[in-house]
Amino acid sequence: MDINWSTLAGVFAVSLGVTVVVVVMFSLGLAAWARAGHGQPASDVPRGRHQKMATSAAVLCFASCLAVAAYGIDLIVPG
């Protein structure tokens, strides 16, 4: 019997890290997306440069989530 505790700790650390990155990025993306006035009536949201900044921040966040997901698919699909 040979329980590989260090591998288990590694699994824990890696999955914690990846999950936090994806969830934080996705949540920030959502918050920025909403701040940019998407997905809600935007009468009181300031328009213009601020809004564009928020939109591009959201796109960046979502893109990073997609990148992680693509890496995940790459791991799932062998070869």
């Binding site: 914690l16 969830v23 934080v24 959502l30 918050a31 997905g39 809600q40």
Partner: peptide, 23 residues
Amino acid sequence: VLATYLAYVITRRTSAYAVGKGF
């Protein structure tokens, strides 16, 4: 637990509609 906590903390000022739709 950590992921859920973070998701709620980060989006707490965001409208419930946008949060629900996005997630």
